[in-house]
Design a protein around this nucleic acid. Structure first.
Lengths: 742, 742
DNA sequence: GGGAATATTCCC
DNA sequence: GGGAATATTCCC
């Protein structure tokens, strides 16, 4: 601001004069200047007010008089240091650009600018052009309104370029083509030397072309316009440049020209997430806030974006992010698939548990009924045997070592006999609660007295439950492992038989079954069971045994095991390996798992459903992330994602991919060590019909795929507009501030 | 290239002369030029060769003679169009910058440049400076080697700034401070007008300051240097700028000055991932390839980075990515938590299934034992009755409507009686395979003849299995719903009793039990069971009934139901609500789930483990992604992530958060409609010890937290160096190409 | 002092 | 024609 005396222009060749003067300081181009104001160092660097002048609130001449310009300059930047105010003023001084002289070569020179005055006579020039001019003008009006709402300008470069073509003095170097839909640079060298520096800070034609390309101008190859005289061409090769929105007489179309960021202005597929291309921004600027909801299905991220204080992300970083995103998504799909499988299996398992519980209940009912029946029936015959004259004495006699008291807890109706014969080894050390006596479900019936043909067996030691200490209220009678002392055995037993005849029956039966084959039963079986015990043929016996042991019964007599005829090893002590039932070892470990109740199962089902919802949300998130990142890929799709759905799980996930592997297995209920074939049953192995279970069912293995895949192939406009929204909400503020002082 | 005649300089005030001349074309500043070459439009725009000249391969004068410069210019850009070659040549013409005259105010003017000749006498100036000068020089040497390895230059702005200070002619406007560690601009206006355009494309002091700031220069506030004479200050306020690496006599320190991208050069915490700050780049340039492995634990992304064809990522995009990352991670944590729960519940379920299987096995054993016993016992008494003289005839007499043949399929040892009394409604329509007769597991014992006190019941219709058509090979005897015709009932039954006494016994028992209370049993119970049937007191009977019905048996006689004494409703038809067993409705639905076998369970376990592995990998991915994105956050941490671990699941996930809710439930095995209290048992509900199950166990709910949280709080150098690595691998190529033609 | 948009240069 | 680095401007 002070000392405005212009520096003397150094004489040519003065570089050699001062030894300190480096040669690179040569200044060869002297741009034409119209005013000698020394403070205005460079011209044309800011023509932002150009379009405001050409808008609807300016005189048809669109040019400010010098006093008006002075006013313009007076609105300097407040609060800046004098030194920076220098630059500011210099820039403000250059705000006004030639906004008259539009359409120099036409008659409608003064009628442009006002929207209502768009010259119609221009349409004869542009009728066959790539778009209907009316459509373009309509789009331009929308774009203008939108841009002005955002306080955005026509890009300065476009304004400058247009001002070149307004000036009739420039027509020897740059001018409109005959049709007015492109412009021609007749002499690139001279244009660069003389005209470019008028409005740009360089004299570099290449930079000018670079800017042209940046704003969507393309060079026309075959100079279709032959209007040029050969003299005009000189020996220079003229260049013609075209932009669909750069037309003579249609300054409003310039509002459709936007800098297309990094993505080229090619097709609408790979739009930049910034402010939309010039080609289609009025189509993509809608959808402001709705996408945010889609973006944040979960509440924690619904808050406003954290202030993004980060620097520019490098493309390599983006590629990395994209790669990781792919990985994430693939794994998400895999997880979702497996969760589905898991859900189905869990469902089956829960159903199976119910089934087993069911069977168990019915078994107990049946056994209870049997024992009740027997208690009724046997009261008389047993007493008739004369050994005792009531049931209590009978039982005391026939099972001499029966000294087990029936405690208060014994409220069940099915007797556990498994431990009577074999006082088994201690409980498994793995038991979490080894204390106290525990209730047991029906144990296996001791079978050492009955040499079954097929009974590989194992030791029968039903372990205690690991859980609740409360005795169950059901009908299962529990016994203690160690007989608690109750000395008065006979009476007690008799009382017990009266109060618990089922247990008494079981004891009698056990004794009979155990000793029948050996002939040393405590019960007088011949008298009790009458003398028909030998009326069974050997074949009948064998068949019965075979039935009991689960073997086929119709292949006649099998002499391997006889029932009544003193079988081998009758006097020998029971072999541990064959004494117990087959299930004890399993039970021992199985008891380590407290059975969850049905509510828990339902809860688990809920959890799985929730799990899947989470997975879906996550897939959506990744989807949207890739929508965001996808446009940065030239093809608009993430490599490897949409190649094929089947290649998704090539990486060590084959295990989970075969949906039939599950059912190809033999579905025997083979519990590993379970040895008693008689208890094996063949479960039905057909797969479940997958229709409705639990309401929240989802076949998301494929559904997630379907959800994600299309977005890779063509990033949804949602993703782009999500980002557009940000610009929309952000830019007005910035632009407003920028504009404030203009 | 052609028509090199310089444009005439327009006369002052010519703006008004030409009407087409816009006023913004004023050109007020006339930079001093040393050569009149009209092709050299602008000066000083490229001084890249400056440091090469000041390096070790140049004469001490560091300045090229005009012929040398001509050579320099001759190395033009090949293969460019003439028009662009114009610009190229113009730029190449300006390559050489004054590289002599370093340390103008010192005596060691000619000794700089060569590394071995770094002047030591300068250390007296810099001894108290912020760093030891030797340390700085050492770092500068490393930085120089690294930069040159990458074909990088000292930033052009720094070169230009340095060249200002080299020129003695500029000392009235810009010069070193006395200590030589900062420089002073004495007259900002004049400096902007006269000196700035010599090397820059503007005369804007603010832009100059902007560049200073970009390269880490800071203004010194209290002009500590009082060396300036008052006359030198004039009335301008001089400005002093400081950069730790900008020192008189230490040109190599300039290698430490790098443009600090967007992140300011503040502390080392928020380093840009680009090329490292000037402050600490020698520390962060290591770690090239190792991070890539960490980044891609999964094979699919191990391939080389895809060509990053994307544009600059906006900060809003980054913020979005970061937000989505947060969402992903939170959901990941939730999913992991639930997978853990799922795993535990699946474990319990599998254990429960085994437990049920166990109970089933024991029941079967018990039943088999009972029936064996009965077969032994009843042979004689039945024949003694005289009704028939063998067992077969007996059964034919006592159960007249017993016409069920025992088919070939009946190989089990336990008889299913449930449907004998009630020919039940057809099977559920929901059955997937309603055809044929199906095997059934043990049904509940029919109880309508026994008025149980507590039997809410439901109809007993065990549905068929939905699965395999093969009859099970186990010990469960199956019966058909519809009795197949076998007219010769007595004989057939008799044969069957011989071959399958257990079934026969069950039938007898059922008949007796059903009709005992009504007194119309087909079996002559008084004769069979002797006359002791009334020897039970009412109390005994009631207690027995209570036992059967699951009630407490020790509260004495309960007159509500009597067994033998003609109970109420004895002649009435059985009430449907109380006839069947309680479990049928459940079984009907439960049967829809074919029980999976153990291999399936193991497979499920495997899948859960795999699931968790995937989760872990995914967490790692997100972790690394956040490492990448984390540095873009100023605090280095993602907001909301490390606030607290407990707030992770505030959003509707409370359901899954309470680890005790699971066990707080009553764990009764209450199967909804299961009505027979007698079959309820109390499962043990202690939680499982979580140690090793399935080998791949993980407590990842918390583990993932632990893994991720530190990375949020302080982004690991890995993340930053990961990105640095990209620049390192990428930049040499670019720089090399750029340099190729210089 | 610095963020961000635009401009210019360099290079492919 | 366009990617990318650097420069310049504008604004906070």
């Amino acid at each position: 601001m002070s000392s405005p005396n212009p520096r003397k222009r150094p004489a040519q060749g003065s570089a050699a004069a001062a030894s300190a003067m480096p040669q690179h300081q040569q200044q060869t181009y002297y741009p034409p200047t119209s005013t000698p104001d020394p403070l205005n160092g460079w011209n044309g660097s800011n023509v932002n007010s150009f379009m405001e002048n050409s808008g609807n609130n300016l005189s048809p001449y669109g040019m400010l008089s010098p006093p008006a310009q002075a006013q313009y300059n007076a609105s300097g930047t407040p609060g800046t240091t004098p030194s920076t105010a220098l630059a500011r003023r210099g820039n403000n001084n250059q705000l006004v650009v030639t906004s008259h002289n539009f359409n120099t070569q036409q008659n409608d020179v003064w009628s442009y600018g006002d929207e209502s005055l768009v010259p119609q006579q221009n349409s004869n020039n542009t009728g066959e052009e790539h778009d209907n001019i009316e459509v373009l003008e309509e789009r331009a009006q929308r774009a203008k309104r939108e841009s002005q709402a955002k306080r955005k300008q026509i890009p300065p470069f476009v304004q400058k370029l247009n001002s070149f073509l307004e000036e009739s003095k420039n027509t020897e170097l740059i001018r409109w083509s005959e049709k007015g839909d492109s412009f021609i640079v007749l002499d690139e060298d001279e244009f660069a030397k003389t005209l470019i520096p008028e409005l740009f800070k360089h004299n570099n034609y290449a930079s000018f072309v670079r800017q042209l390309n940046m704003y969507g101008f393309h060079k026309k190859v075959g100079l279709s316009d032959n209007s040029m005289k050969a003299s005009e061409r000189k020996n220079k090769s003229p260049s013609e440049y075209y932009n669909p929105y750069f037309r003579r007489g249609h300054p409003n179309l310039l509002w459709l020209i936007n800098k297309p960021k990094s993505g080229n202005a090619k097709k609408k597929s790979s739009k930049r997430p910034d402010e939309g291309d010039g080609d289609s921004d009025e189509d993509g600027v809608v959808l402001d806030e709705s996408v945010n909801q889609t973006f944040t299905p979960q509440a924690p991220s619904t808050r406003a974006l954290p202030a993004p204080e980060s620097g520019p992300l490098q493309k390599k970083d983006l590629a990395l992010v994209r790669d990781q995103m792919q990985n994430l998504q693939q794994q998400q799909a895999a997880i979702a698939m497996q969760i589905t499988r898991l859900q189905g299996q869990h469902r089956q398992l829960a159903g199976q548990a119910k089934l087993f519980q069911d069977m168990h209940n019915r078994h107990e009912n049946s056994i209870n009924a049997i024992l009740t029946f027997l208690a009724n029936v046997f009261r008389k015959p047993l007493e008739e045997q004369g050994v005792v004259n009531n049931v209590n004495d009978l039982f005391a006699g026939i099972i001499p070592n029966l000294n087990m008291p029936l405690g208060q807890q014994q409220q069940g109706s099915v007797v556990d006999l498994s431990d009577w014969e074999q006082q088994q080894p201690p409980q498994s050390a793995a038991m979490s609660t080894p204390a106290k006596s525990r209730p047991r479900l029906l144990p296996s019936f001791p079978q050492q007295g009955v040499p079954l043909k097929r009974s590989p067996s194992a030791s029968a030691t039903p372990p205690p439950y690991a859980g609740s200490q409360q005795p169950p209220m059901g009908t299962v009678t529990e016994l203690f492992d160690q007989p608690t002392d109750a000395a008065n055995t006979p009476t007690y037993l008799g009382q017990n038989f009266q109060s618990n005849p089922q247990e008494g029956m079981m004891r009698i039966m056990q004794d009979v079954n155990t000793n029948a084959g050996k002939g040393n039963s405590s019960v007088d079986l011949p008298n009790l069971g009458a003398n028909a015990s030998n009326s069974m043929t050997d074949d009948q016996r064998n068949r019965m045994l075979s039935l009991i042991s689960g073997a086929q019964s119709n292949n006649g007599s099998s002499p391997t095991a006889t029932y009544n005829n003193h079988p081998q090893g009758s006097a020998s002590p029971p072999v541990p390996a064959s004494t117990g039932s087959a299930i004890s070892p399993i039970l021992r470990s199985a008891a380590a798992f407290p059975p969850p109740n049905v509510q828990e199962m339902a809860r688990t089902q809920e959890e799985i459903d929730q799990l899947q919802k989470l997975q879906e949300e996550q897939s959506q998130h990744i989807d949207q992330l890739q929508n965001m990142l996808g446009p940065y890929s030239p093809s608009g799709k993430i490599p490897g994602i949409d190649d094929s759905n089947t290649s998704y799980f090539d990486e060590g996930m084959d295990f989970f991919l075969d949906p039939n592997a599950f059912h190809n297995e033999t579905n025997d209920f083979d519990f590993g060590n379970a040895t008693n074939d008689a208890v094996n049953f063949d479960p039905l192995t057909e797969p479940l019909p997958t229709h409705d279970f639990g309401g929240g069912g989802l076949n998301e293995g494929s559904r997630i795929m379907e959800t994600n895949t299309p977005s890779h192939k063509s990033p949804s406009p949602n993703g782009t507009e999500e980002i557009l929204r940000d610009d929309l909400t952000d830019s007005p503020g910035r632009a407003h501030k920028r504009q404030r002082k203009g």
